[in-house]
Measured scan of single mutants.
Amino acid sequence: MQIFVKTLTGKTITLEVEPSDTIENVKAKIQDKEGIPPDQQRSIFAGKQLEDGRTLSDYNIQKESTLHLVLR
């Protein structure tokens, strides 16, 4: 499925993911596309910070959902 990741600069990245993917996985995909190390990424969805060990389905993130990426 496709999800979108919006950065603070307003750029939107499209990722191909599975509901079973962990947040860690997703951060690795963002690193592949953007070169941002996962330890600098904070992902926010529906106002909640997403934890690395959880999966997209844990957070009820579905296709075409938009995550927000904040850098630390």
Rank of each mutant, 00 (worst) to 15 (best):
M1K: 03
M1S: 02
M1H: 03
Q2L: 14
I3P: 00
F4L: 04
F4N: 04
V5S: 00
V5E: 02
V5C: 03
V5P: 00
V5Y: 02
K6H: 15
T7Y: 12
L8S: 14
L8M: 13
L8R: 10
T9L: 10
T9S: 13
T9N: 12
G10A: 00
G10N: 05
G10H: 04
K11V: 10
K11H: 10
K11R: 11
T12M: 12
T12R: 08
T12Y: 10
I13C: 02
I13S: 00
I13V: 07
I13G: 01
T14Q: 08
L15V: 07
L15M: 04
L15Y: 00
E16I: 13
E16D: 11
E16W: 14
V17A: 04
V17T: 01
V17W: 03
E18S: 14
E18D: 12
E18P: 02
E18T: 13
P19T: 08
P19F: 06
P19K: 07
S20F: 09
S20E: 09
S20P: 01
S20V: 05
S20W: 14
S20L: 09
D21I: 05
D21L: 05
T22L: 08
T22Y: 05
T22K: 08
T22Q: 02
T22H: 02
I23E: 01
I23M: 05
E24S: 12
E24Q: 13
N25C: 09
V26G: 02
K27R: 09
K27M: 15
A28Q: 13
A28R: 15
A28I: 13
K29T: 03
I30H: 01
I30M: 04
I30S: 03
I30K: 02
Q31C: 11
Q31Y: 15
D32M: 13
D32R: 11
D32P: 03
D32C: 08
K33H: 11
K33I: 14
K33L: 14
K33E: 09
K33G: 06
E34T: 15
E34M: 15
G35F: 05
I36D: 07
I36V: 09
I36R: 04
P37A: 10
P38A: 14
P38D: 08
P38E: 08
D39C: 12
Q40R: 11
Q40I: 12
Q40L: 12
Q40S: 10
Q41A: 10
Q41E: 05
R42E: 13
R42A: 14
R42W: 15
S43E: 10
S43C: 15
I44S: 06
I44T: 07
I44C: 15
F45I: 09
F45K: 04
A46H: 13
A46K: 14
G47R: 01
G47C: 09
G47P: 05
K48H: 12
K48R: 11
K48E: 13
Q49F: 15
Q49T: 14
L50D: 03
L50M: 06
E51D: 10
E51S: 06
E51L: 11
E51T: 04
D52W: 05
D52F: 02
G53V: 07
G53T: 09
R54A: 08
R54N: 09
R54K: 13
R54V: 06
R54D: 04
T55L: 07
L56P: 01
L56C: 01
S57D: 08
S57M: 12
S57C: 03
S57N: 09
S57E: 11
S57Y: 08
D58A: 04
D58R: 00
Y59M: 04
Y59K: 01
N60W: 04
I61K: 01
I61M: 03
I61D: 02
I61F: 03
I61Q: 02
Q62A: 10
Q62W: 06
Q62I: 11
K63V: 08
K63T: 12
K63Q: 12
K63F: 06
E64M: 11
E64H: 14
E64N: 15
E64A: 09
S65M: 11
T66P: 00
T66M: 08
L67T: 00
L67F: 02
H68V: 13
L69C: 04
L69K: 02
V70L: 11
V70W: 07
V70R: 08
V70N: 05
V70Q: 09
V70D: 05
L71C: 07
L71A: 11
L71D: 08
L71E: 09
L71S: 10
L71K: 07
R72E: 12
R72G: 11
R72N: 12
